[in-house]
Every structure is written in structure tokens, then in C-alpha cells.
Design a protein around this nucleic acid. Structure first.
Length: 886
RNA sequence: GGGCGGAUAGCUCAGGGGGAGAGCAUCGGCCUUACAAGCCGGGGGUCAGAGGUUCGAAUCCUCUUCCGCCCA
């Protein structure tokens, strides 16, 4: 017995903190810049600095960590850059809420003081998510940690803005944009979430100037009629042809507006005539551009009616709606009102109903940027996993619209622009402070107040984190990154924009592969959210079941192309697996005695007993499979392969068999070596998935190729010689054992060891089986097992058939329950008959014989042979038992 | 309105043209000195429905129903 004493159950809490600290302090997560090594790099999708770790982060970072640890062990120099995102609107909102508790608004503080507050808040809480990532075991290269508002990254942002401006790819102008009156900022199209809500459709009467006739328009937003500058109909619409070119008198305000024809009008919707409010509707804005209509803004940035709204000026937009409807009704302009489902845009940060409005904003021209980014994926320089996501990418990229990048909030990268109050020049500069206008020399400069969309800086993340625009060694060594691991909901927000910026500024793709993983949902398939109360908190799961259990669960469920519905009992199930590993480790360690390093090296494969060879072969197959699956990002399959090998083959079979081998002097040493070899390789294979328990156990192993498992080598597949005959023999042994267990269990005789078992096999097999008798006896808990070539069944014995040929006889006369046995046989017969029937139909079908591949036919024929024999013998048996009872 | 994905054991999910799988739950038997968080064994499924392709369909195609998501 070795001196190693491990407690009989694994205690994750003590182990996890200890190892993370050691790994980090030793700098094991850091790249070495060893020129001999191939490179592997990733950038983390930066979580919001305000956030705390939710289950989606846990999945995302577990998968990245699996890759990072696998590649690191496999000889790559790995850089995994971590960091956080300043999340402009979200963070500002959080701090504003804090202020509100003190009865303050950000305006009360002023810009500078407010930003101080945000920074302070960031210093206090920004570290939270980082420490939570560490709790998860993420092996990020922490010395590279970045924040999107860091000095270096800010420099990159400024550089990108200036260059795009110089290239004419950034412009400023009055356009209709999505406005959140609560966050008081413009939003990009992507940042608006649409949701159907019950609403109304109002039918309004717009009379001709001379009151001789009228047009009826339908609208879901009557208050915007105050800003109408036309009524539009479809040019082919016969009903309205006579109105074209005529003028209408806008109710309530009396404004004179034309009737125009435009193809976008859907004659099927409402009455086929639509009011046109160019300042507050995207479609209407486009119509107005085509027809040179005036733009009248009736709702302001606070969601209140403007002076243009005449008597309604100053009212809130929703209040104005009520008043307008009332007044229309009074004036006889409201013809009817019906229930209608309206699709409303909401702010993705605060949920407020978006107001489309006319505003002066900054935009990026996307078409020229999109083109090379589309090509990069088309030509396969960037590959999506699963591949189907690329269609979504193409679809969006090919219909891309210009990107509104200015935000009217304070927390973010200030747009590097000044306006000259003397000559009106727009000055774009990399300078921190601009002293005078470079056109007219005036010092009367007004800085731009707006900041950039947060995603503007995120788009640069793969190279800004590596030091761009400086030429750094990191960039040179690790750009492009190898893989981006993220979820599909930010393919547009982030992935696409990174590809565009990478192509444009680096002249190279930002990553070679994009692995898109699932969204984690609750058991009912709903998105987890705090308001629904269905959140599974990863930190709580780590507390309850251990980090490794959570990680393994997430990986095991991470099948491609499907959402993950997570339930707590799944995590609990895999916690048992962790404990199983722990105990297998205890067993191995207890049985190593004075094993020496030379013993490991001197292992002679050809001299090993059958099952030692078998387990080494199975290990080799498992290594092959896990590697293949990891390379294809089929994490779940990789996890299942090692799970089943470890539990079902190594623990359930080999460990039990090793107990027998180790009792024999001549086999003891080699068995110890095989146990050691298989177990230590399993630790290696498992480490990327479950780093803590494996590192802890590794630490108890007497000889290690590396002090830390984390830096050890990932097992490689070897050429192996385990013959077909040997495979067949192991199967037969396993089948015999299973059959005996089966019978004993059915007769509730599990603990009875004194039931003699007789096996009937052909001569050739008998010779081979002789060496396996001890194993059969031990694992089936039978004191005697004898083999003959033929045998006459005695009374009270039952017979079982062994798959692949052979029979067993067991004397159950003392215990035999005739009724039970007859039932068992009948059941067996029925099952066999059914199977046989299916196969018979097949092999009697001439078309099957003609068209099916030969090996399939062969297989079916063999199966037919076996099953018919089996059926015959079963029937015979049943008859004899029934006879003997009489 | 357009597009994508899903429906497989009681629950959560794999599989993806040639004998229906896992974890959990359930039932029966075992304290067999690594592990009762365990071991051994069992039961449980017209693979959503209908049609088609095929010698052969849970798997491919079409339609239907229901669920989820994305875009407009």
C-alpha cells in the first residue's frame, strides 16, 4: 500500500481555489513566445464591466477554456486575451440608477463629475466578473487583460475614427434614427427589439382643399399626423388615381399637403392610402427623400411634442395621442377605430418604446467595408461552425445599412471632433485637445458632445487588445486569432463588425474560425432572465456541485446547432462522475506500491494479458475520438467519449479485472503500469474539461512529465496492434459474465457464489477461454466455471445462450422457480421471434438481396443464422422444462 | 410577410439511411476493503402526424400541427 491517503469523497471547495492560485502565480496561463511552438490565440468576448457571471458566460468561457487548455497541452503557445467592455448605455444606466437613489440626475453632477462616478463604480464592481471568471477556472492570459476604455484601446478607437473619416467612410447628417427618450440617445437599428403589442388602428378622414371629397388613411400612431407632409398611395391603385396631384387639408392643423404616388405603399394595408410623416417613420422618411417633401419634427428628444405640433406642444407623446384622437373625433375626422396588433420597437437596454425621429448623427458607410468581409467568408478564410450560421451572416452583410455610431450619452469614447464656430469647419483630430481651427485659425472651437457606440470599440477588440495601432510583438505573433467562440445573438453586433474592421485596418481576418455555441435556456426552453426568475446562477451551481461538475455539464450539453436547456439535476448527475474519477484515482494510487519509473518505460505490450491490451486499445481509440471531436468543436461528443471510456470501460471492467491480475506475481507489475498509464492519460484527456479534480489527482501521481497537469502533454494516438481475434475474445468474456449476472439477478441470487456454471464452446474457443476463467469467476461471482465441448443438460439446470456462439448451464435446482423460468423463456422466445421476423422479411426480399451492400446482406444472414439457432434451442428448452414439470 | 431551428424514454438531451441511446427519475438485488455520490440487473419509446423517395426511413423530401428564434 502506498502512503497516499485520500478522503473517500472529493471536496471541490478546498481544491479549486488552491489550484487556480497556483496556476496563476506560476504564470502558467501566459504565452511563452517560444519560436518553436505553433501559436493558438483567442480573444474573450468581453463581458460588460457592470455584469456578473451568468450561465451564458459560464458556457462561453468553459468552451474557450477547453480549447485553450487542450491546445496548451498539445504543444501550442496559447494566448487567451481576457477583458471587459465598458457597455456605454448599460453602465450609464446603472450608475444613473445609483444616483437616483440619492435624488440626483447626471445633469445635476455635470459631465465631468458624472464620469468620475462611473469610473469609481467601475473600479469597485468591474473586478467582480473577472474574479468570477477565475472561479470558473478560465485560464486566460491575465497579464493581457484589457478594458475597452483603456488608454491603448481608446487610442485605437480614435485612430480608426480618424482614418475612416479621412477615407470618406464616416459622415454626419440629418437622418431618421431610432431614439430612446429614456436613455436620451440614438440607437443603431440592431439595438432595437421589436415586439407585437395590442394596439389600435385609427381611420382618419383627410378632406380635399375644396372639401369636395376626402381620402381615408389608416394609422396606428395618430399623434404623428401633426407632422404629416403628404398622403401616399400606390401608383397603380385605381381607387386613388383621381386624387393624384391634388392637395389635402390636414385636419386639426390645416396644413396643405399633396397626394403622391409611391410604389412602397401597400394597397392591401388599411385603406391603401397612408399618411406620410417623414420625421418620425423610416418608410416615410424614404418616401420624403424621393419626393422632396418637407420634414416636420413634432416629437422631441424627450418624447414631448414640439412647437410644430401647435396646440399640442409640450405634451408627452402618449398624452398627445389621446388628445389628438379626441379632437379628431370632435371634428368628425375620425371614422373608425379598430383593434390591431402593432409591432413596437423597444430600447434593448431599458425597454422604453423607441421614437423614430429626425436627428443629426454620425454614420459609417458600411457597403465598402462589408464587401471584403463577405469575401473572407465566401472564400473560406473564415469558417463558421456550425456552417449554417454563415447564411445568416451573408444575409445581413449583403443587405447592410449604414451604421449610426453616435450616442448622446456620456460614458464612452468621445467622438474626436470639434466644430469651428468661426468658419463652421468640422475638425476631426487625433489630438487630445484641439487649440485652433486648422482651416481659419480661430480658437473658438466647440467639441463634439457625443460618444461612440460601444460596439465601435468592440469591433476592434481582436487587434486593439494586442496593441494596435502600434506594431507590437503580440500582434505579429498572435494575429489573426485562431478561433472566436461566441453565441449567435451577437453575430451582427460583433462578429460581422470585427471581420469588417479586421479586414480594413489589419488587412487580415481577425480569426480563422468562428464557433457559434447555443444559448442556454431554462428547462422549458425560455430565455433565462431575472424578471422571469428562471435563472440558474453558475456561481451557486459551483458552490453546490463544484466547478468541474458545472463545466462538464455545460460541455456535455453543448451540441452544435441547438439551444441548451439546462436543468439542475443534470449538473448533479455529472458531479457523480467527478467523484467517480476521484475514487478511481484513490484505487490506482493505493495499488501502485513501489512502482518505479523504469517499470513504466519497460512495459512489453506483447506480453500483457488480454484485458490489459484491451484497455490500452480502448484508451487509444478514445484519444483518437476526443481529439477528432475537439478539432471539430463537437464538445459534447468529446466529453461523452471520455465519460464512457472512463466509467464504463476503465472503472467497470478494467479496474475490477486488475484486482485479479494484481494477485498474480507475474502480472502484478505490468498491471500496475497499465493502471498508471491509463489513469494518468485519462487525467490528461479530462483536464481541459474538468481542470481542478484532474490537477489535484495529478499532484498525487508519483511520476509526472510536468509538475502541473496544465502544462503536461495531451495524449496522442498511437499505432496499435489489438487483433480481431482478441477483440472477439474480450467480447465473449464480457458476454459470459453479463449472462451469468443476468440470470443470477433474475433469480435474486446475486450474493450466491456456489452456483456452478458450465460453459459449452467449440474446441478453439475453449483454449482461449482457459486463461479467462478466473476473470469470469470473479466478475460473475461464481466459485466454479468449467468449460466443455459438449454437455448433456441435467434436470434443474437452465441454459443461456451466449452472443457470438456458446452456451451456459447453471444449476438452479435449489432455487428454480418453474413459473418464472417458463416466463423468462417465453419472453425470450417472443423477442427472438420478432427480431427474426424482421430479418427474415429482409433476406427473403429479392430486391434487398439485389440492391443492398454485400456486407449488410452478410450481416443480416449471420444474424438470421444466430437467431434461428437461438430460437430453436430456446423452444427446446421450454419444452423440456414443461415436460419435466409434468 | 420572409428565413432558420426544434418535436426521440416520466424529465433533460444525444444520434442522423441497415438491429432505438445517455444522464436523472423509477423498479429489483447487493455495505463485493476505490467509490452507497457506489455496484449488478430490470422495466419503460407506433423517434409529433400524414404522404413520398428507397430493397430498407427516427434519419432524406413534401405537407400539416405545435414550440422557439432571427429578419422585415
Amino acid at each position: 500500500m502506498s502512503e497516499v491517503q485520500l478522503p473517500p469523497s472529493y471536496n471541490p471547495k478546498e481544491v479549486e481555489d488552491k489550484w487556480y492560485k497556483i496556476w496563476e502565480e506560476k504564470g502558467l496561463f501566459e504565452p511563452t513566445y517560444d519560436p518553436q511552438k505553433p501559436k493558438f490565440s483567442m480573444v474573450i468576448p468581453p463581458p460588460n464591466v457592470t455584469g456578473s457571471l451568468h450561465i451564458g458566460h459560464a458556457l462561453n468561457n468553459t468552451l474557450q477554456d477547453v480549447l485553450a487548455r487542450y491546445k496548451r497541452m498539445d504543444g501550442y503557445d496559447v494566448l487567451w486575451i481576457p477583458g471587459t467592455d465598458h457597455a456605454g448605455i448599460a453602465t450609464q444606466n446603472v450608475v444613473e440608477r445609483e444616483l437616483a437613489k440619492e435624488g440626483l440626475t447626471r445633469e445635476d453632477l455635470g459631465r465631468e463629475k458624472f464620469l468620475e462616478r462611473v469610473w469609481k463604480w467601475k473600479e469597485t464592481y468591474g473586478g467582480r466578473i473577472i474574479s468570477q471568471l477565475k472561479r470558473l477556472g478560465a485560464s486566460c492570459s491575465w497579464s493581457y487583460e484589457r478594458f475597452t476604455m483603456d488608454e491603448g484601446l481608446s487610442k485605437a478607437v480614435k485612430e480608426v475614427f480618424c482614418r475612416l473619416w479621412e477615407e470618406g467612410l464616416i459622415y454626419r447628417g440629418d437622418y431618421i434614427i431610432n431614439w430612446c427618450p429614456r436613455c436620451y440617445t440614438a440607437l443603431a437599428d440592431l439595438e432595437v427589439e421589436f415586439e407585437p403589442k395590442p394596439g389600435k388602428l385609427w381611420y382618419l378622414k383627410y378632406p380635399l382643399l375644396d372639401d369636395s371629397d376626402f381620402i381615408i388613411v389608416a394609422t396606428t400612431r395618430p399623434e404623428t399626423m401633426l407632422g404629416d407632409t403628404a398622403v401616399a398611395v400606390h401608383p397603380e391603385d385605381e381607387r386613388y388615381k383621381r386624387f393624384l396631384g391634388k392637395k389635402l387639408k390636414l385636419p386639426l392643423l390645416g396644413r396643405i399637403i399633396p397626394v403622391i404616388a409611391d410604389k412602397v405603399v401597400d394597397p392591401e394595408f388599411g385603406t391603401g392610402a397612408v399618411k406620410v410623416t417623414p420625421a418620425h417613420d423610416f418608410n416615410d422618411f424614404a418616401i420624403a427623400q424621393r419626393h422632396q417633401l418637407p420634414l416636420i419634427k413634432v416629437i422631441d428628444e424627450y418624447g414631448k411634442m414640439t412647437e410644430e405640433a401647435g396646440p399640442y406642444a409640450g405634451l408627452d407623446r402618449f398624452e398627445a395621442r389621446k388628445r389628438v384622437v379626441e379632437d379628431l373625433k370632435k371634428g368628425g375626422f375620425l371614422l373608425k377605430e379598430e383593434d390591431y396588433e402593432v409591432v413596437l420597437g423597444h430600447c434593448y437596454r431599458c425597454g422604453t418604446v423607441i421614437e423614430p425621429l429626425l436627428s443629426k448623427q454620425w454614420f459609417v458607410k458600411m457597403k465598402p467595408l462589408a464587401q471584403p468581409a463577405i469575401a473572407a467568408v465566401e472564400y473560406g478564410f473564415i469558417k463558421f461552425y456550425p456552417e449554417s450560421w454563415k447564411n445568416l451572416y451573408f444575409d445581413w452583410m449583403r443587405n447592410i445599412r449604414d451604421w449610426c455610431i453616435s450616442r448622446q450619452i456620456w460614458w464612452g469614447h468621445r467622438i474626436p471632433v470639434w466644430y469651428c464656430e468661426s468658419c463652421g469647419e468640422i475638425l476631426v483630430s487625433r489630438e487630445e485637445v484641439l487649440e485652433f481651427c486648422y482651416k481659419c485659425g480661430s480658437t473658438a472651437l466647440k467639441p463634439e458632445e457625443d460618444v461612440l457606440d460601444t460596439w465601435f470599440s468592440s469591433a476592434l477588440w481582436p487587434f486593439s487588445t494586442m496593441g494596435w495601432p502600434e506594431k507590437t510583438k503580440t500582434l505579429e505573433t498572435f494575429y489573426p486569432t485562431s478561433v472566436l467562440v461566441t453565441s449567435f445573438d451577437i453575430i451582427f453586433f460583433w462578429v460581422a463588425r470585427m471581420i469588417m474592421m479586421g479586414e480594413h485596418f489589419m488587412g487580415a481576418i481577425p480569426f480563422e474560425k468562428v464557433y457559434i455555441h447555443a444559448l442556454v435556456r431554462d428547462e422549458k426552453g425560455q430565455k433565462m432572465s431575472k424578471s422571469k426568475g428562471n435563472v440558474i446562477d453558475p456561481l451557486e451551481m459551483i458552490e453546490r456541485f463544484g466547478c468541474d461538475a458545472l463545466r462538464f455539464t455545460l460541455v456535455a450539453l453543448a451540441a452544435q446547432g441547438r439551444d441548451i436547456k439546462l436543468s439542475v439535476n443534470r449538473i448533479e448527475g455529472y458531479k457523480h462522475f467527478i467523484n467517480k474519477i476521484w475514487n478511481a484515482g484513490r484505487f490506482v494510487l493505493m495499488n501502485l506500491d513501489d512502482l518505479k519509473k523504469e517499470d513504466l518505460e519497460n512495459l512489453e505490450y506483447e506480453k500483457l494479458p488480454l484485458f490489459s491490451k484491451w484497455i490500452l486499445w480502448r484508451l487509444n481509440e478514445t484519444i483518437k475520438k476526443v481529439r477528432e471531436k475537439l478539432e471539430e468543436f463537437e464538445f459534447d461528443q468529446a466529453a461523452m467519449a471520455i465519460y464512457h471510456f472512463f466509467w464504463d470501460e476503465f472503472c467497470d471492467w478494467y479496474l475490477e479485472i486488475s484486482k485479479i491480475y494484481m494477485r498474480k506475481d507475474e502480472l502484478k507489475k505490468s498491471t500496475q503500469v497499465v493502471l498508471y498509464k491509463v489513469f494518468s492519460d485519462c487525467l490528461k484527456i479530462l483536464h481541459p474539461f474538468i481542470p481542478f479534480v484532474t490537477e489535484e489527482l495529478w499532484n498525487f501521481l508519483p511520476f509526472r512529465d510536468e509538475e502541473n497537469l496544465l502544462r503536461s502533454s495531451y495524449p496522442r494516438e498511437q499505432v496499435f496492434n489489438f487483433s480481431k481475434e482478441e477483440k472477439a475474445l474480450t467480447e465473449t468474456v464480457i458476454n459470459i459474465i453479463t449472462a451469468i449476472r443476468n440470470i443470477k439477478s433474475e433469480y435474486n441470487l446475486t450474493s450466491m457464489k456456489d452456483i456452478p456454471v458450465i460453459g459449452i464452446f467449440d474446441n478453439e474457443k475453449i483454449k482461449k477461454l482457459e486463461d479467462q476463467v478466473e476473470i469470469i469467476k470473479a466478475l460473475s461471482r461464481s466459485e466454479t466455471f468449467s468449460i466443455f465441448e459438449s454437455y448433456q443438460k441435467k434436470e434443474g439446470e437452465i441454459m443461456v445462450l451466449i452472443e457470438g456462439g456458446g452456451e451456459l448451464f447453471m444449476d438452479l435446482s435449489k432455487y428454480l422457480d418453474f413459473e418464472k423460468e417458463i416466463n423468462r423463456l417465453k419472453r425470450e422466445i417472443k423477442k427472438t421471434q420478432e427480431k427474426l421476423e424482421v430479418i427474415k422479411r429482409k433476406i427473403e426480399n429479392p430486391q434487398f438481396l439485389e440492391k443492398a451492400p454485400l456486407e449488410v446482406i452478410e450481416k443480416e444472414r449471420r444474424a438470421f443464422e444466430e437467431l434461428s439457432q437461438k430460437l430453436e434451442r430456446l423452444k427446446d428448452l421450454l419444452e423440456r422444462i414443461e415436460n419435466s414439470r409434468r
